[in-house]
């Protein structure tokens, strides 16, 4: 049924596959090193440096990190922030992006300029901290969910995606008696699944990496997300105690390299697994195919 591919096309394909596989290999090898390292002994990591397979297999690092109260707790905090935060993000972002994508919307340009301006200029950490404080969000999870509810960057790109939807959609829906909210919910959103999937990923990863705001806004360490723990261990393991300005310092025993790597693995794997699940929404032609169909 399909036409037999030409020679040129076949060569193109094999070169393409080869290049991509090579690139994938380059990107994945360091991660394999981290995984291998998490099962290795301190001696092997120190003496051999870069390893892809431990000669002496050890589970000590995982035993240690799971023996702390911190790991599981902060992992749960992160999952909560990520899920709740992403839902909030998607709601607010899409809701705002759609009207701004409509050509018949008034004040579209000034509103967009207002948004772009916030990408370039910001009041800085301290005034933002004060706003969060004045809204009573300090020490609550709201401080990690609401102040970043909309990313101007994502908003502008989602708007661009919405703009590329065929123009005729709204007219036909209006004739069917839909109001604008109805059009958005019943027609635009279902057609934009690839965009939604993409931006859920972007937002989710952003929340997963929440670190500085957590330390800044939340004083109760039992509410800290996993990145705080990860960073502290990574920095301690690389020998920095964090405050190099002080003239005096106390000796802080660095955690074993394997512990560092085990924490990286445990804190990265869950979010890595999100993408493969979202991939089905990227299948070619989902968007227009379904419109025509």
């Amino acid at each position: 049924m399909p036409i037999k591919p030409s020679w040129g096309s076949r060569i193109f394909d094999s070169v393409n596959v080869a290049l991509l596989l090579a690139f994938a290999l380059i990107t994945v090898i360091p991660f394999i090193y981290v995984i291998a390292g998490s099962f290795a002994t301190q001696k092997e990591l120190l003496m051999r440096g870069f390893i892809l397979f431990p000669t002496e297999f050890s589970l000590d690092a995982y035993k240690y990190i799971f023996s702390t109260r911190t790991l599981v707790r902060s992992l749960l905090v992160t999952v909560y922030i990520t899920v709740a935060g992403t839902l909030i993000n998607l709601f607010f972002t899409c809701l705002m992006a759609y009207p701004l994508a409509r050509k018949d919307m008034d004040f579209r340009k000034p509103i967009l300029m207002l948004i772009v301006f916030t990408m370039l200029f910001s009041g800085g950490m301290i005034p933002t901290f004060l706003v969060v404080k004045q809204l009573g969000m300090i020490d609550t999870y709201w401080s990690l969910l609401i102040p970043g509810a909309i990313s101007a960057f994502n908003l502008i790109i989602i708007r661009n995606f919405f703009q590329q939807l065929p123009d005729g959609l709204e007219e036909s829906a209006k004739i069917d008696g839909c109001n604008d909210l109805g059009i958005f919910l019943r027609i635009v959103l279902p057609l934009s699944m690839p965009a939604i999937a993409t931006f859920s990923l972007f937002y989710a990863v952003g929340h997963w990496n929440t670190f500085f705001n957590a330390v800044l806004y939340i004083n109760d360490h039992t509410k800290w997300p996993i990145q705080v723990l990860l960073r502290q261990i990574v920095i301690l393991a690389s020998g920095g105690v964090g405050d190099s300005t002080a003239m005096e310092s106390d000796y802080v025993a660095p955690p074993d390299q394997a512990v560092k790597m085990a924490v990286i693995v445990v804190s990265t794997l869950p979010i890595l697994l999100v993408y493969p699940f979202l991939q089905k929404h990227f299948a070619k032609g989902v968007l227009l195919g379904s419109v025509k169909g």
Binding site: F92, L95, M105, T118, G123, V131, I146, I150, L155
Partner: peptide, 19 residues
């Protein structure tokens, strides 16, 4: 539909702008 987002930008982006 624009309102909540606009409010967000005003409160969390423009209010701290005095910084």
């Amino acid at each position: 539909m624009v309102l909540p987002g606009l409010l967000y930008f005003l409160v969390f982006k423009y209010w701290p702008m005095y910084g």
